[in-house]
Amino acid sequence: MRTRRDGTTRPTRHRAVQPLSVVWLTVVWSILWRDLSLLVVGSGVLVAVGVCLVFPLPPIALFARVRPWPLAVLAGGFLVDVVRASLQVSAVVLRRRPVRNAVVAVDLESSSDFVLTGVATILSLVPGSVVVEARRSTHTLYLHVLDTPDRARAERFRAEALAVEQRFLAAFVPRDDHHSGRTA
């Protein structure tokens, strides 16, 4: 971080080159060239560093460590949810009854941006829910949920969303300083 004269901060340019994004961009580059020669990988690294310098992103405070078995539980639960919810959305589309929806607020327990992003991505990819608003200050997600005929169904969705967050927290153990928890 570099401090401006008026006290605000901006990230320094050289910090913008993050190893993980360089690796990812190089992998994409070599996949697109369908080749793994030294020339392709070398030019890929150069292009990746250039992209990181021209389009700098703030570094994300990542998780401290990954636990393999809870990660498998998270991935398995995600796949089950996707298949089940795809069939549900298809049934909603094909039946004749009109559909009723709900906008549900989900207050996440964790206060980490990484957890907020991850949970929002998982919930968005599961059919039947779209994130319409994410409030970073209180770590609240507002989700539009398809086919909620009554309030009890909305409450059930909220419980499912919080269960996804718990599975996510079990798989990616956050760093302590970012996982203070608003209730603590």
């Binding site: 559909v99 009723r100 929806n101 709900a102 906008v103 549900v104 607020a105 779209v130 994130v131 319409v132 608003e133 507002y142 539009h144 909620t148 005929p149 009554d150 309030r151 169904r153 909305a154």
Partner: peptide, 20 residues
Amino acid sequence: GRAAFRAGQVRHDLLVVDEL
């Protein structure tokens, strides 16, 4: 979805619960 909500393009009569 966010743009639609902010622009008011939402059928509120279809919503059972609207916490936003």
